[in-house]
Nucleic acid binder design. Structure first.
Lengths: 337, 337
DNA sequence: TCCAAATTTGAAATCGCTTTGGATCGTAAG
DNA sequence: CTTACGATCCAAAGCGATTTCAAATTTGGA
């Protein structure tokens, strides 16, 4: 069933039927109803490719996943995004690539073949090659995270610096002085922001940051474990941890137990929580103190902002920093004597 | 840069250029090279919508995620799938919905507007309404999982029954008699298969299944914890667990510790592991015995099979059951006296 | 009653590609 | 010297929508 058939069926022209279905004002209300009824009755839906070709709009956003970077948070983000976009009939196109080069190739492809109207960029570096290229390609995009300077693109990020500063400060308030930071991969913007927050908090109390208590690594259980274990082997053990993710926290927790210590008493920890439905900080034993920000909500908001961008809002007007709440639970306690 | 411009630029007709780029035989090798060179030099790529419209093929597969069903395994699957499809320039279209009705609506939409050539169906019931509807719509699909009977569609599944039978049997071999099954949601095919495997193993040893040791629930840390905790409150405590997922296992593990017991000594557990890069069964303390099957690999294979389906292979020829390996680690030990 | 303005509809061009059905040319077979 | 054929190339017709431009029909005021 295509437009032509539907139009013939109704005894109308394609023009009128198209207009009726797309809500143009210059069509009689009675015919509009008649058209709408026939369309649903006959199960007509405009051919997406034809419409895209005619309008020049893809009605789709793209997102490229890097195999080494995606994790449980990715699907949460995607879920929030897709949910927002579903009723607007905007498609989400995902591809997976292994390298930055492949990622860039994917953008070139998408731009040249007009598969998407915009893309979502994630896990940025302060000076990100991809940004220059997207600008070059003229492909609109929204950055989930931040890059350096005052960029001309849209972005949404959480206040990583503030969150980490607050977490660190709280641990200092509890009397901890040897506080470890198990951070994300070296060089990524969010990792720098977190380090900055950490350093700021320590600096404000006159505590000199100890390089052996700062580690940059991917967010896995295993690396959390290893990092913590190594620190426990050294002379000055940390009495508290600021963990980059829940997965890292699980590993650190394991290392603490392995070392015969108790979380919340011998060692404290505050982890960053993206809020997973299947892993609740509140349910852990001891329950985990966290800096918390729903990545699912971020996905939803990104969908919203992208729609605004497409509607013509200036990219320079689309900047959002989300505050991060801190939830104190049992994993944080006063520093041991 | 479109085909017309490129053709003019080359002093050729659109026909020849199109053919040259798409590898048709009736074009001189010299001109083909000339065309290819110009195309890359000028950054030409066929407009995807135009091509789709002309060929009638979407060059895209769809996947609908249900908010209540997706989890960390989802992105792994998606990653494997996308990786396989990337170089074939097949797009993946994901949407998120909250209900079965919305999911079906999404399929209708996709079918009527010809957005995808096929879809991937996941988390099936033995008699799944979606299957009937997809058959009805004539939208090709591959089922990740299984439905009842000898279906006419393509599917790929792991041997859930065999895996669970084997895990249960191993626990029986270790002397356990009160073995709990923390299964997936009631009614889902894979959950039935697992229950069947569990019952078969018990039956073979003359052990009567105890309904209070069998629970159906979603795969979250929390539900694992609650289920185990409830079982520990009752008269006949289980001495072993067969856990449906790593998340469930984390919760059960927590309940075991909370009850003052030790995993691998007082209580045993075998969990099913989809293989996550960020949560390694081998690294847990004690390390976790698992039935293991990479869901990422499954995604990759599904991509492969879908391509075969599109290439004309009969859906009835595309049926795969993957064996599941069992990896014994420290979380399983002899039953206590 | 009549004319101008608003309402409502349609014919046809357009989007950028693929593909059918020839044309053209050189060459080998008859 | 034709003729037929393979090798190359091209013009034009779709694919199924949107949208411009114009025509037909109502409506309303003088």
């Amino acid at each position: 069933m295509n437009l032509k058939e539907l139009a013939t069926n109704l005894g109308l022209s394609q023009t009128t039927v198209s207009r009726a279905l797309n809500g143009y004002p210059e069509v009689n209300e009675a015919t509009r109803l008649r058209v709408a009824e026939a369309a649903t009755r006959l199960g007509y839906r405009a051919n997406a490719s034809a419409r895209r070709l005619a309008t020049g709009r893809a009605a789709a956003f793209g997102m490229v996943l890097r195999t080494e970077a995606y994790g449980p948070h990715t699907v949460e983000f995607l879920g929030g995004l897709a949910e927002r976009l579903f009723h607007d009939e905007i498609d989400i196109l995902v591809s997976t690539v292994e390298s930055e080069d492949d990622e860039i190739a994917a953008y070139r492809r998408a731009a040249a073949s007009k598969k998407v109207d915009a893309v979502i960029l994630t896990s940025p570096y302060p000076r990100d090659r991809r940004i220059a290229i997207l600008n070059d390609l003229g492909l609109p995009y929204l950055l989930h995270g931040r890059s350096e300077g005052a960029p001309s693109h849209a972005w949404l990020d959480i206040d990583n610096e503030g969150a980490t500063e607050r977490a660190t400060r709280h641990l200092l308030d509890l009397g901890h002085r040897r506080i470890a930071l198990v951070n994300g991969p070296k060089g990524m913007t969010f990792a720098s922001h977190r380090e900055a927050g950490y350093r700021a908090a320590l600096g404000a109390r006159g505590v000199t940051p100890n390089p052996s208590l700062m580690v940059n690594t991917i967010f896995t259980d295993e690396m959390g474990f290893r990092s913590a274990q190594q620190m426990f082997e050294r002379a000055h053990r940390p009495t508290a941890f600021v963990a980059g993710s829940m997965m890292t926290a699980l590993g650190i927790f394991r290392a603490i137990r392995s070392a015969g210590m108790e979380l919340g008493r011998d060692v404290s920890m505050i982890a960053h929580d993206d809020v997973f439905p299947y892993l609740n900080a509140d349910n852990m034993v001891p329950s985990m103190s966290t800096t918390r920000s729903s990545i699912r909500a971020a996905g939803t908001r990104v969908g919203e902002l992208l729609l605004q961008l497409m509607a013509g809002k200036a990219a320079t007007e689309i900047h959002e920093v989300w505050p991060v709440e801190m939830v104190l639970r049992q994993s944080t306690g006063p520093a041991p004597e």
